[in-house]
Amino acid sequence: METRHYEVSVESNLLNDIRHHTRWFTGLGIVFLVLGIAAIAFPFIAALSLEIAIGILFVVAGVAQAVHSFSVPRWAGFFPSLGLSALALIVGLLMLFYPLAGVITLTTLVAAFFVVTGTFKTAFALQLKPAIGWGLLLIGGLLSLALGLLILFWLSEAYTWVLGLLVGVDFIFTGIWMIALASSAKRL
């Protein structure tokens, strides 16, 4: 009896949150759709852009940590901090100077991300059952899991296009789910 009360409470809280923020859910869904279509239309450019952006973030993080390391006088963590700074700089510079190797690495990381998020989306959908939108979330979770495994199996043959394509598919499905969730919440 207590479990059913919790399920009704979770469903009504979720529904109320979605109703009060319908425009945000719809807007975010549209953003995901547009980004997904762009990634599918230009998969290699999407993969390279992602790889370069992450490389730049690593370089910035490495420089910031190096500045921090030298700005704190007689700090006991100087050498570990400086070592982590050097690691971030090296990884960032390698990604910028060897973008194809970075794309392969990122493709592997995205595969792991899809496997993990697919597992969590699936588990979350099963917790939300029979709440509004749980079926679409379940399908999205299973799709993410399948995409992650697909990337791992095709890595050596299709790393130049698979990352952009699969990220695009996942973004499109997430966008559709968010728009459907917002429009369903309006009707209830």
Rank of each mutant, 00 (worst) to 15 (best):
S85H: 04
K121N: 15
I18T: 04
V169F: 10
F97W: 08
F44E: 15
L188M: 12
L93K: 03
V162G: 05
T119M: 14
A131T: 01
F78G: 04
L149I: 11
T119F: 15
I30M: 10
A61Q: 05
F70K: 01
Y98W: 12
L155S: 02
I18Y: 03
G83V: 08
L100C: 01
V34G: 02
D17E: 10
S69G: 08
A131W: 02
A61F: 08
V103Y: 04
W154F: 11
P43C: 03
V31Q: 00
V34S: 12
A146N: 02
I56Q: 02
E157D: 14
G27S: 11
I90P: 01
L166W: 05
R23F: 07
G175I: 05
M178G: 00
D170L: 12
R4F: 09
W24E: 05
F153Q: 09
W177F: 15
L48G: 01
W75Q: 09
G118R: 07
A46Q: 12
S9M: 13
G83S: 15
V116I: 14
I30Y: 09
K186C: 01
A182G: 06
V167G: 03
T160I: 06
F153K: 04
G141T: 01
K121W: 14
L155C: 04
I132Y: 01
L181W: 07
W154Y: 12
F153I: 08
R74M: 07
M95S: 10
F97V: 11
G29N: 03
K129C: 09
T22E: 12
A64Y: 09
A39N: 03
P130H: 13
A146G: 15
L14K: 03
L188W: 10
F113C: 01
R23P: 00
L143G: 04
Q127N: 06
V60H: 11
I52H: 10
I56C: 07
L126I: 12
W154I: 00
T22L: 08
S156V: 01
L15H: 10
G29K: 00
A111E: 13
F124A: 08
E157Q: 14
A185S: 06
I37M: 13
F153S: 11
P99F: 02
T122G: 14
I52E: 10
L166M: 04
I139T: 07
W75R: 05
